[in-house]
Design a protein around this nucleic acid. Structure first.
Lengths: 105, 105
DNA sequence: TGACAATATGTCAATTGTGGCATAAATTCA
DNA sequence: TGAATTTATGCCACAATTGACATATTGTCA
């Protein structure tokens, strides 16, 4: 499952430019939904941070983490949990409704 | 932070019937938002399972876990991650929009 | 161009989450 | 009732996530 995510990143790097992971990989519906959800929220996190003109170092301080972890957060690294993404969004003042909107697109 | 959740459960058991944890505990805004989000989603998971007349053992098989972990999932045990909750919801066929609705109330 | 800032990637020890098991407590129902 | 089913709780070894650090890569601008 962690491997699938890696596989996806590898494909993306090779320029596959996939929109939805599902058709290329043998991911279950749950698994791809979960991954796509993480990607949506990660992208939203980066959007919020850059809108506020914060660097990754700035955000790292706010969430009491490190620049490298923030980078991983934003690039959807398989090693980051949904928990950390959500916590970070809340730390930036995101509301439940904002998160809901992001999830629904 | 894991202790705060425990504290809340203890208070609830003693009949405090708190609606929002915030005023009783010295939780940060982020922390309480995160906990309340988990509680919402956990409650929704239980609702879905019981609507479908599944036992915790049934659900455990579906998500390839154990009955005890399902119990913890549904009671908002501090040891369960948002990841597992979300994955379980997806495993029951929940859509992004369903999740968004749950989050917004 | 090249220096400087920002972001990305790799690694690792410590922390946190996990499934599984045993068993307790609660619920259902004949 | 009380036996059977379901749910809750405690525990543990193992697995996954974490912050931190070093370093590489990318972006910015004079």
């Amino acid at each position: 499952m962690t491997m699938d995510k890696q596989k996806q990143k590898d494909l993306e790097k090779k320029g596959w430019k996939i929109g939805s992971a599902k058709e290329f990989l043998n991911l279950s519906e749950e698994e791809s939904s979960y991954i796509e959800l993480k990607i949506k929220l990660s992208a939203n996190l980066r959007k919020l941070r850059t809108e506020r003109k914060l660097t990754q170092v700035d955000l790292a301080k706010i969430i009491k983490s490190s620049q490298s972890r923030v980078a991983k957060l934003e690039t959807g690294d398989p090693s980051v949990s949904l928990d950390l993404i959500i916590r970070s969004l809340f730390a930036l003042g995101t509301s439940d409704k904002d998160i809901a909107r992001t999830i629904s697109y």
